[in-house]
Structures are given as C-alpha cells and as structure tokens.
Design a protein around this nucleic acid. Sequence first.
DNA 1: CTGTGTGCAAACTCTTTGCATAAGT
DNA 2: ACTTATGCAAAGAGTTTGCACACAG
Lengths: 152, 152
Amino acid sequence: MQNGQNTELRNGQAPACWASRLRERMRQSGLRPTRQRMHLATLLFSRGDRHVTAEEVHAEALGENMSVSLATVYNTLHQFTEAGLLRVLAVESNKTYFDTNISDHQHFFIEGRNEVIDIPDSMISVQNLPEVPEGMEVAHVDIVVRLRPKKN
Amino acid sequence: MQNGQNTELRNGQAPACWASRLRERMRQSGLRPTRQRMHLATLLFSRGDRHVTAEEVHAEALGENMSVSLATVYNTLHQFTEAGLLRVLAVESNKTYFDTNISDHQHFFIEGRNEVIDIPDSMISVQNLPEVPEGMEVAHVDIVVRLRPKKN
DNA sequence: CTGTGTGCAAACTCTTTGCATAAGT
DNA sequence: ACTTATGCAAAGAGTTTGCACACAG
C-alpha cells in the first residue's frame, strides 16, 4: 500500500463522493457509468495503489459476488487505460499488468514471485538521457529494478 | 548496428575461429553444438547486436534455406539465455524479445513501430536508487525510454 | 425507445510440451 | 550404440472479437 495521488479514494470512505467524481470522469471519456464499470472502478481505485492483471481483477470481482465476465474485465481495463485512469506496465513478458497509480513513478519487480512494488516518486532519477533519434520524442521513461532473494 | 561486446564476431569474418569458440561455449553449458544450434547462433551473433523475437529468427532461418522448426527456435533461444548468451527484454507485453548484447545497457523502444534500439553503455545512469526491501538484492536495473513520433 | 455495454463462446497469437525420428559423440 | 536434439502437431496460456441480449439515458 504505497502513497500515490488518489489520496481521496482511501479506505472506502466517502464512497458517494468519489463515486460521483468517477461518474463524471467516465462521462468525459465517453464511457457510460454502468454497473460493471463502476464496480470494477471501486475495486481498482478504492484500495490504494495496485498492480493487477485482468485475471486477478476478474477473480476478485467474482469473489465479491460481482457478476462480470473476463472479456468485460479486459475491455474495461483497456477503456480505463485510454481514459487515463490506468497505466500498462511492461515488467514481464506475456502478462499485462495494470497500474492504478498513473503518476510518474517507477517499480521494483520481484523475480520468481512476480510482484510489482512502487518506488515512491522522485526518489529515483535518470542521468544523461541520450539524444533521441531524429523526429522522435520521449513518451515515458520506465525503470524496473529487478529484485531477487539475497543469498544470505 | 550498435557496438557491443561481441566485437570479434563482426562481419562474418574468421568464421571458423569464432565458430569453434561458440562450440566450446556450448559444451561448457552442456549443449551439444548441433547443426541447428550452430546455425541459429550464427544468425544471432555474427551480425552485430540484435533484438529479435522467436518468430523473426525463425523466418530469417527459413529465408536462408535453413531447416528448423519454430519449437526448436524457442527451445534454442531459451537454452542460449540460460547459458548467458542472450538476455530477455520486457519492453512490450505479450511478446518476448531476445537481446544478443548481454552487456549492461538500456533501450529505446519506439511505440507503434515496436522497434528496440540500444542506448550505448554508460551514457545513461540512475540516481538515488531507493533502499531495497529486506532480504532482497538488485538483480538488474532495466530502463526503457519509450519514444513516439514528434508532433511536427 | 435507441444505442451502447455485456456475456458468452469461439478465435487468435504467442509459447510450451510429448513423442517418434534423427543426429551427435 | 547410446544419448540428446529435433520436428511436428497438439495443447496451453493470455487476450481479442462477434453477436445476441440487457441495460442506461
């Protein structure tokens, strides 16, 4: 549970308040605030910053008696990503991780355990970014610090 | 074509020489230097540093009248990775890129075009690496600078 | 009502595996 | 000869798509 920017969404408090914010946000992105989308948004954004796969979200939704199909979870996650509510992480091949913290930050990745942990903003920085090829600009700099268990 | 550490493997020159080195290297890793493995190794290591997918290697092999199955390409790429001859890159979800340059370096990734380009060693560096969780150590720090076409 | 979203199943891509055959030592 | 690698095809994960039904505005 790291600190991020969704401070107002903590602990499930004032749900009516942020639910209506979310509703507006969805409308702005052309997404109708349906039952499933609102429920998934609650899962994703009311519990601090999270790094999840579609399967995990689906399992969690089912565990809360929420009826939603895996296809809808995938669709919704991608729609949220386009709407700027989520980021996609490329930490491991062959699995898409979605990050609910869209602020500029970096990650630890624990090999073997396949766990993603936020590195708090501004602690890490890059020096000597090389010149970018002609006609290109930097979209984002991603840093993944891969960790493994220390050999005692 | 960036510079890497496989300087002696350039331009297909002295093939007998580095082929025998490779043979030894394979034996050390418990891999028999079979026709397919030697041929794939030639593809991979005699043309400068490369970032390839299994499909690309397979297509290239077939294009050179080399008979090899996709399954063998996958197996071989993973065996080479375990032997320390290749690195796996996590730049894009759902596709495994293998890097023939195993030295410590970072990458540009051109979004949309799905192209990986080396950032030469030592030009880029990270500051203020945060404290690593208890019992863990850093295996590797991966930096991906994502590029997109500049809007004129 | 009208149009968009959803669920389901099937398709699709990338990757791995099992087993008979082929090749290396 | 003996062992390991290969090829093929089939299976397996993860993800996407098409279409009929359901729901939001």
